[in-house]
């Protein structure tokens, strides 16, 4: 990295999320941290520590009860539901533990759906871009198959290709290797490392996977909904 300060992509200010049940449940509280461009951050913590809840807040799928999430300089608490959707479409990409591919569509169509929805590219350009992404992830030969014809590792790579469709600045991943064997976990992990290093894509991934967490530049460890440690990963 050069001498100038790296650009901040995401920042949280005292983010707290309380589920308003009869007995209110605090999912996360007082989260303050920021992520710069090209950083690969892993979020770890015991079950129920609020990792996924925090990721949904960072991914603008959920709104904090208190505090603010600022993405690309935009205070997202000021946006309504539709504006948030548009913001996610243009700036964010999601990879979940389950691939969530649409079974009716081919692999290529699955990848191009968000591109078409954004509508910045023509049908032909969207197709070319989808194909390019699949080839980069070495699954170009599967483009015309349907999701149920692919292996778990291949499907997760398709999901990553889909998340990259609109060239997001921030990728949010929730246990992306949670359902994969070691070999496929390594492939997915390498893809994330390469995306961060070579293309400057910011990645925030919730994980249980020790190797995966270690491969990240930085680790945020949550305990009981609060940040317990932020820095280099320490094996438990």
């Amino acid at each position: 990295m050069s001498g100038e300060a790296p650009r901040v992509v995401l920042e949280t200010e005292n983010v707290t999320r309380i589920l308003p049940l009869t007995v209110p449940v605090t999912l996360v509280h007082g989260i303050n941290f920021s992520v710069t461009a090209g950083e690969f951050v892993s979020i770890t913590g015991p079950s129920g520590s609020g990792k996924s809840s925090l990721l949904y807040l960072l991914g603008l799928l959920d709104a904090p009860t208190e505090g603010r999430v600022i993405v690309e300089g935009q205070d997202t608490s000021l946006l309504d539901r539709d504006a948030l959707a548009q913001f996610r479409l243009a700036h964010l990409g999601f990879v979940f533990q389950f691939h969530f591919l649409l079974p009716e569509f081919t692999i290529l169509d699955n990848v191009t759906i968000p591109i078409k929805r954004l509508g910045a590219l023509s049908e032909k350009e969207a197709k070319d871009r989808g194909m390019q992404l699949l080839e980069d992830l070495e699954i170009g030969d599967q483009a015309l198959k349907h999701p149920d014809q692919l292996s778990g590792g291949q499907r997760q790579r398709v999901a990553i290709a889909r998340a990259l469709g609109n060239a997001p600045t921030l990728i949010l991943a929730d246990e992306p290797t949670g359902n994969l064997d070691t070999k496929n976990s390594d492939i997915v992990c390498d893809i994330f490392v390469r995306l961060a290093k070579e293309q400057g894509t910011t990645i925030i991934a919730v994980t249980h996977d020790v190797d995966f967490a270690e491969a990240a530049d930085r680790n945020v460890h949550l305990v009981d909904g609060a940040i317990a440690r932020d820095g280099a990963y320490q094996r438990p």
Partner: peptide, 16 residues
């Protein structure tokens, strides 16, 4: 429901 959820997380609006 899952497909709807994933489409919405991608950035499809309620309107879509």
């Amino acid at each position: 429901r899952r497909d709807i959820a994933i489409l919405m997380s991608m950035g499809f609006r309620a309107y879509d």
